[in-house]
Design a protein around this nucleic acid. Structure first.
Length: 563
DNA sequence: GCCGTTTTCGGCCCGACTGTTTTCAGTCG
């Protein structure tokens, strides 16, 4: 079983948290279930295969939640969930999804109006029956109807590329140099829920401009303004120059990271908020213009935004053991590109010219093998001709084109081209493109078989996910990484914003195991090469430094690595 | 329910904004 199973287990834990919310249970117990769900979601290891004690080593998972996780992994449910479901109507927790509707509101609607579903809530609001409740009025009724409408039209998380585009359009209304992106966009997550921006421009001058572009205002204030733009939620926070750092830190998050920092502040006799630090002994407030000041007052080295996920970075920042993260400027080449030899739009010569223009020292020409049905792939004869084109390109361009292939891993783990053909190539990427729904152990063994082929150098897009469109396969990545380490094979970080595969949680494991990463844009045309920066950002989120990333090696060192 | 440089009990981040109020509760990020 693979990460999809972790997502299912996490979903059940969140379901329990929602049911507890609706029942008005202890908020800390609820948060405990939410934290446990988060711990499961981002575990690179399949929780179904973990022992009780291994589970309890995960941060946020203890006696109760580990037992629940084991039961959920085995049976799909657990005793806590079962007993809660007897007390709460099945569709009631969905009301929590509505903006402005929380547990107290749901309880009141349920107990006084016997509302147990979204449809019943909408009918009650339209029938003006909600305003009769104590503490509710006409405005609240309208707010609920608006929330229902927005909920029905909701769209999922954005790809990072989409988020950049939308953020850029919003930022075009702000004065350059006065703002910074924050939130998950700044942290470089592969998907972004909403866009967060901090600006030093005053609200009075920004808000009127926002009203011009917004499709709908959510709320508008002197400290912050929220609105919808192109169907996405945008939050802008206004900060004075002397508080900008504390505000940026706060709005960048993550939420878990913020809590960790605030707890640290408390333990050191201070209080951290979005303006600065309060010294509780003398009541003195230190406003922080830069994030550096906040970190320094908390006794920490600067933590790059990509690491702010409460995955051990605060302890590392205290000990001075944060990794030196890879930078885009460290990248000497792109390790995955297609040409007209398969389904790309550039010739070999154009590929070399493009890579030259990017300032790369090398680029890996890695077309599909003919075995793959969906893309017109290279036959051994086609590959022979391409080798000649590469020779010519290497004479005409500074950037060296590496002769390679993206060979198909067949359902049984054999490869789409004979060993004798692969032996003539400089680098071989092997990827799964078919039968992605194989059962976990089967697809894992399939890829391990490919790893054990002496000609294979890199495993391409290991989970096969297409973000928001296709779930990762059930492949067991830690097992793949163990096998890759044994065989001296690298794993790809496919930098396409549609894939970002491997993702951060697995990259960190790869780094810890000493498995090298090859970042490839999987470019099929001239516009795709710029995705390298998403790859680098994702690698940074995986705690990777330059030495963990093969693209930072010189050409000769790269080729030596695989020899 | 989880957790420990106040360690097995007693805590658990903090402030902005809205609506319905008359001083605050609820929700959100």
């Amino acid at each position: 079983m693979g990460s999809g199973v972790n997502a299912e287990v996490a979903g059940v834990l969140l379901r329990i948290a929602d049911l507890l919310l609706v029942l008005g249970e202890n908020p800390f117990k609820i948060r405990a279930y939410q934290r446990a769900a988060e711990a499961v979601r981002r575990s690179p290891y399949v929780v179904a295969g973990m022992s009780r004690s291994e589970l309890m080593e995960l941060d946020g998972i203890g006696k109760g939640t580990s037992e629940a996780i084991l039961a959920i992994a085995e049976t799909g449910t657990c005793s806590e969930l079962e007993s809660l479901m007897e007390k709460v109507p099945a569709d009631l927790p969905e009301l929590l999804e509505l903006d402005g509707v929380g547990p107290k509101t749901v309880q009141k609607l349920w107990s006084h109006l016997n509302i147990t579903s979204l449809a019943e809530l909408e009918a009650a609001a339209r029938g003006r029956r909600i305003r009769g409740l104590r503490g509710f009025g006409e405005k609240k009724e309208e707010e609920i109807l608006r929330a229902v409408r927005i909920y029905k039209n909701r769209s999922g998380r954005m790809l990072i590329s989409e988020a950049e585009e939308i953020a850029g359009e919003v930022a075009a209304t702000l004065v350059p140099g006065t703002f910074s992106y924050a939130g998950s966009l700044r942290r470089g997550r592969s998907t972004v829920g909403d866009i967060d921006i901090v600006t030093t421009e005053p609200a009075q001058s920004v808000n009127p401009r926002i009203r011009e572009i917004a499709t709908e205002m959510i709320d508008e204030g002197m400290k912050k303004t929220s609105f919808f733009y192109r169907g996405k939620r945008i939050d802008i926070r206004f900060a004075d120059n002397n508080e900008f750092g504390a505000t940026l830190l706060y709005l960048t998050g993550s939420k878990e990271f913020n809590i960790k920092l605030r707890e640290r502040a408390i333990s050191r006799g201070m209080q951290l908020n979005e303006y600065g630090l309060l010294n509780k002994q003398n009541g003195e407030i230190t406003r922080c213009a830069t994030e550096d000041e906040v970190f320094s007052l908390l006794g920490l080295h600067f933590i790059p935004p990509e690491l702010r996920e409460d995955r051990g970075e605060v302890a590392a920042a205290e000990a001075g053991t944060l990794p030196q993260l890879v930078e885009l400027s460290d990248i000497k080449g792109d390790l995955h590109a297609h040409t007209t030899g398969s389904d790309g739009s550039l010739s070999v010569d154009e590929l070399a010219a493009t890579a030259d223009a990017l300032g790369y020292d090398y680029i890996l020409c890695s077309d599909h093998s003919a075995s793959l049905g969906v893309a017109r792939g290279l036959t051994p004869e086609g590959l022979f001709e391409q080798a000649h084109e590469i020779e010519i390109a290497n004479r005409n361009h500074e950037c060296q084109t590496i002769a390679g292939i993206e060979v198909d891993i067949m359902t049984d783990g054999s490869l789409g081209l004979p060993d004798s053909v692969l032996a003539d190539l400089d680098l071989v990427i092997a990827s799964v493109h078919s039968s992605l729904h194989q059962e976990g152990d089967q697809i894992t063994r399939r890829v391990i078989t490919a790893i054990e082929n002496e000609h294979v150098d890199i495993i391409g897009h290991p989970t096969g996910r297409l973000i928001g469109r296709r779930e990762p396969s059930a492949i067991d990545i830690p097992r793949i990484l163990e096998a890759a380490r044994e065989a001296g094979v690298a794993v790809e970080l496919n930098a396409s914003p549609y894939r970002l595969d491997l993702d951060d949680i697995y990259l960190k494991t790869a780094k810890e195991l000493g498995v090298k990463i090859a970042i490839g844009t999987d470019s099929h045309g001239p516009g795709d090469f710029a995705a390298m920066r998403y790859g680098v950002t994702t690698a940074r989120r995986g705690w990777c430094g330059a030495r963990d990333i093969l693209n930072t090696y010189s050409l000769s060192k790269l080729l030596d690595f695989f020899r």
